[in-house]
Design a binder for these strands. Structure first.
Lengths: 142, 142
DNA sequence: TTCCATACATACCTAAAGGAGAGTGTCGTA
DNA sequence: TACGACACTCTCCTTTAGGTATGTATGGAA
């Protein structure tokens, strides 16, 4: 049986861990929860706007459904990135604000935003080049 | 693109765009493609290891299936983040290397890795606190 | 002669992402 | 009396993520 596919159980031995595997696993888990489109977008919006209400937040983020907005905000609350404040008034009022942790993550993601803005032309160019390359790939080279 | 989502059609008026909406949309699209767990992990691995073969890459990334590895690498190639080199030898050999663009993105994500490492305790504490809060909140309900 | 190694492709399947739309509760307004 | 506002929740549905298993090509090793 074996065969199967790649048994990624290290025939090469232990991969060179520069940090201890526990921390590494934890960091990966954190990244997995945080490296999310909507999370990044909401984080950014809250960073810019500060304390914001639900509907307003949805408008500012743009293109997000109510469902994903709710869900992502809950996750972020759970992860300690935002605080959720409920005002017990008759037309319901709830607002969201970044925590210190949230702000620090926002700052960490800042580089990615800058990257996307700075390299947008290169990124598009690379994609275009790839498309052309694929189209021209009928060339029997090497 | 076209907002058929919520009625987020701005009863508040136009959201305050600090940049032009076209750039904004492009940046969001880029983020959407790049803010991905596997992409980040592979990026990081290639940054550390340099030119790496397929199977080896899978081991180093860890926990990734062959399918996702292939898929993510293709996406990254398409996005101009990695180059794929095929050696026409008998046991197939293919390796991957970051492009300049890939390296710059890796650098941009660096802050997030640092954040995750630096705040891992706070992150866990926040999650624990939220769990307790939820438990206590349901208790105090009347 | 059979098997192994590499770097996939392909097919099949389940779970999660994510959108659309309707319902909820309360109250002020038209 | 009906409606709209807000911040949801719930159901239904489609798409994507992602895993497992198997196939493929080929030459050298067993």
């Amino acid at each position: 049986m074996t065969a199967g596919k790649l048994d990624f159980t290290a025939p090469y031995g232990t991969p060179p861990e520069h940090t201890d595997p526990q921390l590494d696993a934890l960091v990966r888990e954190i990244i997995g929860r945080v490296a999310d489109k909507w999370t990044m977008l909401i984080l950014e919006t809250l960073e810019q706007e500060g304390r914001t209400r639900f509907t307003r937040l949805g408008e500012l983020v743009g293109g997000i459904s109510q469902k994903m907005l709710t869900k992502t905000l809950r996750q972020m609350e759970e992860g300690g990135l935002v605080t959720r404040t409920i005002y017990p008034v008759i037309p319901p009022k709830v607002d969201y604000e970044l925590t210190e942790l949230g702000r620090s993550l926002s700052a960490a993601f800042c580089g990615v935003w800058v990257w996307a803005e700075h390299y947008q032309e290169d990124i598009e160019a690379a994609r275009a080049a790839f498309a052309i390359h694929k189209a021209t790939a009928s060339d029997t080279s090497t």
